[in-house]
Write a protein that binds this DNA or RNA. Structure first.
Length: 789
DNA sequence: ATATCCGAGATTTTT
DNA sequence: TCTCGGATAT
């Protein structure tokens, strides 16, 4: 048998040997998906397909690099085009720039550049943004672009103020980008999609050229990517995609789950391969994950299974507060490492939001456990790096006004706001880029001799850099540092300057390495492109022996022997900002699923009974997801700390009304019964612990059922009687006790959540989102509204 | 041009 | 509680 197929299972083999026609590989977590892709590439090559006819697309550089490496092992010396979608888009756009109104030397703006540009556009055109931040507007524009809605097609939705502003800003922003010969990340896809759509001959040529297209993480593709892929696999429909609808966690970035759910409809002749065998996790971990995700409606059924051992029970722990949670986790890790049973790199701690990492970090430090946090502060996004590269950017693309504005007075050379204003005005009037306006400084009205001289000196700097532009990257950057005076400006020995200097040194080192790999000079554009599209989050190293701390999103695609997921609480996971749309709740559930399935041997989920968040201590509600997990695979622990007495909570008892949703009642009974039956008389503490955990879960169930989470859950609305009953159990309080985000109860409207507050004392008013009647503005002193807990 | 003060707002972030 | 950005003061 072919050596490429030897180590594969039957379904894997079926996918690898699939030659012509569309292919959908539904790959569960840990099912060897990357192997399938890389082996298929190698297999195609071995069957005589030219490597240049194969195109493989991923979402991250990390994934692309990893695959490239593995393909190189399987098929040495045969390079296929394997890159991220965006890089592929950039490559095509450089070739076909003119078709979409760009210069081939266009600049790629990152998110902050885009935001900056939007800001400038708003100022220049004096657009009334109704207080929507540039950030918010960019998000909306980005969403539109992901949906393939161009600036001139964009229509405001009636009733949406935001969209009305966007309708004004989007075309202006897009015009600015084109005038600057720049694109944002979304344009890299949008322009390509448009290009392929509008130019049949180019589409046909590329379709034929990229005869075999493969896509990883297909569940994360957006509309633009979908259209590009369709265009490239129409005459030669050899599109092979792999993905897992259950791991789609980027819906908020425009990913359209329907792309994968409806793949079979789009390509009727598709061959579907399911990789359901998991090689990663224990049976118990897998069953917990499987049962949880089974609560999603929008999915494709998969039967996950594994030959791995049962493993230990998944732990669910209720801690008294976040510090106990953090210290206990740190202590567990410290102890196992000290005993020599484990090493730090075996562990990972996941959280829903970055803000939750604090207590964990602190505890790790105190326990002396080495750890690394994976966070998106990227090297190329640092100010000093962007400053320096902006000079190169401007020389490479003289129309790049953004780069001009960034560099004109950085380092400071006495060119102030007024001067820039005049330049901008002049440029605007003549329809020329800022750099060109600067070249005409001597002719500009209102410029003193001194001002004009300063501007001329700046232009001189740009020209000096341009003179060496065809040399090595290191030389170009070196010239920037000297000519611009940037390096000299970092002369002080305060920490920040020193730090920046060090980063710049690092940049030079990086440039030198780049030059070695790309000899011959004149490669600055390629270098810039790399700086725009490669982020240094990829520098998370698996080599060093440290505990990994990261968000659930960042965890996708990784695996660890032991995983902790913290703050599995209502409002955190699922996050409180998920809207009323059930799809968003399902995405949160998938996020939990992703987290769980990262674990190979052990998994601990935990919540804190009280948590300090944004300065306020709040009692938490355990995540409703916990109630969707199989109790019999789990071990519920309160730990010492959970035994501390806490205030009587009227909701903290199982509700005994028999109305409403059966499944909830079943869950309640289930929990209660188990908490009692588990105590076999031996371990008293344990019994109490279970009791507390169960009671907490019960509270959550009661809340969820009452709809107290105000639209978060899909549960039915409470009856009037229920609302009144709940309400009467609650104490009356002073108006000033009410806080933003607080869950409250109203005798008539039932439970609700405070979304806004104003005034104090008897003037204190609250805007409350009720589950039943929507938003109401209420004067607290005159109302019977009470805190729910 | 820089210091500092206040208020608003505070998910996730492959590119 | 913390952080970022804008506005104001020096």
């Amino acid at each position: 048998m072919n050596h490429l197929l030897e180590s594969l299972t039957e379904p894997q083999r079926a996918a690898v040997t699939h030659h012509e026609g569309p292919l959908l590989v539904l790959a569960g977590p840990g099912s060897g998906k990357t192997r399938v892709i890389t082996h298929r590439i190698a297999y195609l090559i071995e069957s005589g397909v030219e490597p240049s006819q194969i195109l493989a697309l991923t979402f991250t550089n990390k994934a692309a690099d990893e695959m490239q490496r593995r393909v190189a092992e399987l098929a040495p010396g045969r390079r296929v085009w394997l890159s991220t979608f965006h890089r592929f888009g950039a490559m095509l756009l450089r070739r076909y720039a003119e078709y979409v109104g760009l210069e081939p030397n266009f600049t790629i703006y990152d998110t902050s550049d885009a935001r900056q540009t939007i800001k400038r556009v708003i100022e220049a055109r004096e657009i009334n943004t109704l207080n929507y931040s540039p950030d918010r507007l960019h998000e909306a524009i980005s969403a539109a672009k992901n949906k393939l809605i161009t600036a001139d097609e964009y229509q405001p939705r009636s009733g949406s103020m935001l969209s009305r502003v966007v309708a004004e800003v989007y075309p202006a922003y897009q015009a600015k980008l084109l005038a600057s010969s720049a694109v944002d990340f979304d344009d890299l896809l949008l322009h390509v999609a448009k290009l392929l759509y509008e130019h049949a001959e180019i589409r046909a040529e590329l379709d034929a050229r990229y005869r075999y297209v493969m896509v990883d993480e297909y569940q994360d593709t957006n509309r633009a990517q979908y259209v590009i892929l369709r265009a490239l696999s129409s005459d030669y429909p050899n599109l092979a995609v792999t993905g897992d609808p259950d791991q789609s966690i980027y819906g908020w970035r425009g990913a359209d789950l329907n792309n994968i759910l409806e793949f079979e409809r789009d390509y009727p002749s598709v061959k579907v391969v399911r990789l359901e065998r998991n090689y990663r996790s224990t049976k118990r971990i897998l069953r917990v994950a499987d049962e949880l995700i089974g609560h999603n409606l929008k999915r494709k059924r998969k039967d996950l299974w594994t030959e791995n051992g049962e493993g230990t029970a998944v732990r669910l722990i209720a801690y008294i507060d976040q510090d106990k949670e953090a210290t206990d986790i740190a202590e567990q890790i410290r102890a196992s490492v000290a005993e020599g049973k484990r090493q730090p790199s075996d562990y990972a701690v996941f959280y829903r939001v970055n803000a939750l990492s604090r207590s964990i970090e602190k505890a790790m430090r105190n326990a002396g456990v080495p750890f690394q946090m994976v966070r998106g502060q990227e090297f190329f996004a640092r100010k000093e790096i962007k400053d320096v590269l902006a000079y190169c950017q401007l020389v490479n693309n003289p129309r790049d006004d953004m780069a001009f504005e960034r560099t004109i007075n950085t380092p400071v050379r006495g060119i102030g706001r007024k001067t820039i204003e005049r330049l901008t005005e002049h440029a605007y009037r003549h329809g020329i880029p800022l750099l060109e306006a600067a070249r005409a400084a001597w002719q500009i009205e209102g410029f003193s001799k001194g001002t004009a001289a300063k501007v001329a000196a700046y232009v001189e700097i740009i020209d000096r850099i341009a003179a060496v532009f065809h040399g090595d990257v290191e030389e170009v950057i070196g010239t920037v540092l000297e000519a611009s005076g940037y390096k000299a400006s970092l002369g002080s020995d305060d920490e920040q300057d020193q730090n920046r200097l060090a980063n710049i040194e690092e940049l030079l080192t990086d440039a030198r390495q780049f030059d070695e790999q790309n000899p011959g000079g004149g490669q600055i554009e390629a270098y810039l492109e790399r700086s725009w599209l490669v982020n240094e989050t990829d520098n998370w190293d698996t080599e060093t022996d440290k505990v990994t701390l990261m968000t659930l999103h960042a965890a996708k695609g990784l695996e660890f022997p032991i995983v902790f997921i913290v703050a599995v609480e209502d409002g955190v996971l699922p996050h409180e900002r998920v809207g009323q749309h059930p799809d968003e709740l399902e995405e949160e559930r998938r996020l939990a699923f992703v987290g769980i399935t990262r674990a190979k041997e052990e998994l601990q989920m935990s919540y804190a009974i009280t948590r300090d968040f944004r300065g306020v201590r709040r009692r938490t509600i355990p995540s409703s997801f916990l109630m969707e997990m199989p109790r019999n695979e789990m071990e519920m622990l309160g730990g010492e700390e959970a035994f501390d007495p806490h205030p009587f909570d009227p909701w903290d008892t199982p509700s005994d009304d028999d109305e409403g949703d059966d499944s909830w009642d079943f869950q309640l009974e289930d929990v209660t019964t188990e908490s009692v039956s588990t105590g076999d008389g031996a371990d008293n503490k344990r019994q109490t612990a279970l009791g507390i955990a169960a009671a907490a879960l019960t509270t959550a169930a009661a809340l969820a059922r009452a709809g107290a989470t105000a639209g978060l859950s899909s549960s039915a609305s409470p009856s009037r009687e229920q609302a009144a009953a709940v309400h009467s159990a609650l104490p009356r309080v002073s108006p000033d006790v009410f806080k933003q985000g607080m869950i409250v109860a109203h005798p008539e409207y039932g439970p609700g959540k405070i979304v806004a507050l104003s005034g104090s004392g008897k003037n204190r008013r609250a805007t409350i989102q009720f589950a039943t009647v929507g938003q109401k503005k209420i004067i607290l002193a005159h109302s019977a509204v009470r805190p729910a807990r």
